[in-house]
């Protein structure tokens, strides 16, 4: 218990250090540039306290829960030797964690308004809702697909740069065909899909796989899953936009 307490306090102290820059930036801009007083200092302090506590808990849970379970699953699949199940797991994880992601829901609704304004879809609430839902499913599918490809890459040891460069070419190619209303959202959708819980889990899965499979180096082969997950949504979303435009 003593050990845990010490560790926890160390983690709290480092959380405080991690947050210092952003607090400084906001306060300095508020006081010196905008020259407005800081509203409700008590609220600010309580909020900061919560953030520091939250980050401390998150770090503890990361080392105790998310990282071990991700690696344990990777090792279990590697021992089991069933590539199919591993791919199904990767796809489900990618799809399942993305489809309900709050940031994605927000961006999909915004995207629907843009599409309606641009005349891509009709401006009714129903058309917008179905467009937004289609977009979310497209992005979730693309993340599932990304984790699957990423896992395949680790298993077969394909060099990461080639796969990524192929992805970049895909993005460039799709940009030529995609309607302009969808390009901005497509480019941004790559970034919003990777949430705070997904990232550690997927990272642990990749690193665990790379260390469990003979001939793979966790440093060279273990990373890259997140990179795929932020690349494929761009391609898929532009494809979705083009499809809606030409068939809608």
């Amino acid at each position: 218990m003593e050990f845990f307490r010490n560790r926890f306090f160390r983690q709290l102290a480092s959380s405080l250090l991690n947050l210092l820059p952003i607090v400084t930036v906001i306060l300095v801009f508020q006081i010196l540039i905008i020259q407005a007083p800081v509203p409700d200092a008590a609220r600010l302090l309580v909020g900061m306290l919560l953030v520091v506590l939250g980050l401390g808990f998150f770090m503890q849970g990361l080392e105790q829960g998310l990282f071990p379970i991700g690696e344990a699953i990777a090792h279990a699949f590697a021992r089991k030797g069933s590539l199919l199940w591993l791919l199904i797991f990767g796809f489900t994880l990618g799809f399942g964690t993305t489809v309900a992601e709050p940031a994605l829901i927000a961006i999909a609704q915004q995207a629907a308004s843009i599409a309606a304004d641009g005349g891509m879809i009709s401006a009714t609430a129903a058309a917008k809702a179905s467009y937004a839902l289609g977009l979310r499913i497209t992005i979730a599918l693309s993340v599932g697909f990304a984790v699957m490809i990423g896992v395949l890459r680790i298993v077969f040891g394909w060099p990461l740069p080639y796969v990524i460069i192929a992805g970049y070419c895909g993005v460039i190619l799709m940009t030529l065909f995609a309607p302009p209303e969808v390009i901005g959202i497509a480019y941004d959708s790559g970034g919003v899909t990777t949430s705070t819980i997904t990232v550690p889990l997927v990272t642990a899965l990749g690193v665990g796989l790379a260390s469990a499979i003979k001939g793979r180096n966790p440093m060279i082969d273990g990373f890259g899953l997140i990179a795929f997950a932020s690349l494929t949504p761009m391609i898929f979303v532009m494809g979705y936009g083009a499809f809606i435009k030409w068939n809608g």
Partner: peptide, 26 residues
């Protein structure tokens, strides 16, 4: 592992709540 998950949950909830209270509005 289970307590770890609970910690992650508590951590993210507090973290988001604190951000909403302090940093995001500003």
């Amino acid at each position: 592992v289970l307590t770890g998950f609970v910690y992650v949950l508590i951590g993210i909830a507090l973290f988001l709540e604190g951000l909403e209270m302090a940093l995001f509005p500003l």
